Simulated scan of single mutants.
Amino acid sequence: MTKLSVNINKIATLRNARGGNVPDLLKVATDIQKYGAQGITIHPRPDERHIRYQDARDLRPIVHTEFNIEGNPQHNFIDLVLQCKPEQVTLVPDAVGAITSSAGWDTIKNYAYLTEVIQEFHRNGIRTSIFVDPIFNIIEGAKKTGTDRIELYTEEFAHQFSLGNTTGIEPYVKAAILCNELHLGINAGHDLSLDNIKFFKENIPNLLEVSIGHALISEALYLGLDNVVNMYLHKLK
């Protein structure tokens, strides 16, 4: 079964809108795990407009499944990860002020930088994943950095699927086959939803984990958080 890690950034966004502690981020994370999700993902950004760095520290003791921290490995982010020691860190090349992630790493251009960061995380027993587009030489470059996994950036698949174009899965299938040949673990995320997750899962060999936030939280407004988490789990079996 592919694991479901729920990104709770949107819960933090809602909380921050009023400046208090409603909704309670820690309680939501606890409940999501109770409902069956196998992980909690956060993506703190430098301006802390949703997840705050202190949230990561507060979440660490209560995440008993898998804690995944995403972000651009600048100095403050690296320090945070080394302090929290999550089970996984996902390296994402988002620019300061970016609304959301919009591209994967150029693992060739950034080879030395990524390799140095990954070695530091490995020395501290933290599994690493690199956010990449489904491009062969980029995936081969990721392998050379020593990363444990890659996370396939799935926005283009989701867009094509919404248009009824199921052939949009093909680059991701080919990328997954290459990852399996290279013994790279495969994660995926961005714009995956209840509408497209089953099709994606069924076509990607050895998909280990998906990280889903915006769609899942939006769907939960209508269907309820417990129900939505279990709907994803059912589709990922």
Rank of each mutant, 00 (worst) to 15 (best):
M1F: 02
M1K: 12
N7W: 09
A12W: 06
T13C: 10
R15W: 09
R15P: 01
G20C: 04
G20L: 11
D24Q: 07
A29W: 10
A29E: 05
I32Y: 03
I32A: 01
K34V: 05
K34N: 14
Y35T: 08
A37C: 11
A37N: 10
I40K: 06
I42N: 00
I42A: 03
P44D: 06
D47T: 06
I51Q: 03
I51S: 02
Q54N: 12
R57E: 13
R57T: 13
R57G: 00
P61F: 05
V63M: 05
T65V: 08
T65K: 13
E66V: 10
I69N: 03
E70I: 03
G71S: 07
P73Y: 05
H75Y: 01
N76D: 15
N76F: 04
I78A: 02
I78N: 02
D79K: 15
V81L: 02
P86E: 08
P86K: 07
E87C: 01
Q88V: 15
V89H: 02
T90Y: 01
L91A: 08
V92M: 12
P93K: 09
V96E: 12
V96H: 11
G97K: 10
G97D: 09
A98R: 00
A98Y: 11
S101I: 01
S102E: 15
A103N: 11
W105I: 08
D106K: 05
T107V: 10
T107C: 12
T107P: 11
I108V: 14
I108A: 06
K109P: 00
Y111I: 04
A112E: 15
A112F: 07
A112M: 04
L114N: 04
T115N: 14
V117W: 01
V117M: 02
I118R: 04
F121L: 06
F121M: 14
H122L: 07
R123F: 10
R127S: 14
T128Y: 05
F131D: 04
F131T: 02
V132P: 10
D133M: 08
I135M: 01
F136V: 14
F136A: 15
N137C: 09
I138E: 12
I138S: 06
I139C: 05
I139T: 03
G141N: 04
G141Y: 02
K143R: 14
K143N: 07
G146L: 04
D148Y: 09
R149L: 14
L152F: 13
Y153L: 04
T154M: 12
F161V: 09
G164C: 06
G164S: 03
N165G: 00
T166N: 11
T167E: 15
G168Q: 09
E170L: 12
Y172I: 08
K174L: 13
I177R: 12
L178P: 00
C179F: 05
N180L: 01
N180P: 02
E181H: 13
L182S: 04
L182E: 05
H183E: 14
L184S: 07
G185Q: 10
G185I: 05
I186A: 05
H190M: 07
L194I: 03
D195H: 12
N196S: 08
I197H: 01
I197K: 01
I197G: 01
K201P: 00
N203R: 14
P205G: 11
N206C: 07
L207M: 09
L208C: 06
V210L: 01
S211Y: 00
A215D: 14
L216D: 04
L216A: 05
E219R: 14
E219L: 06
Y222P: 00
G224R: 11
L225D: 11
D226I: 02
N227F: 13
N227Q: 15
H234T: 14
K237L: 11
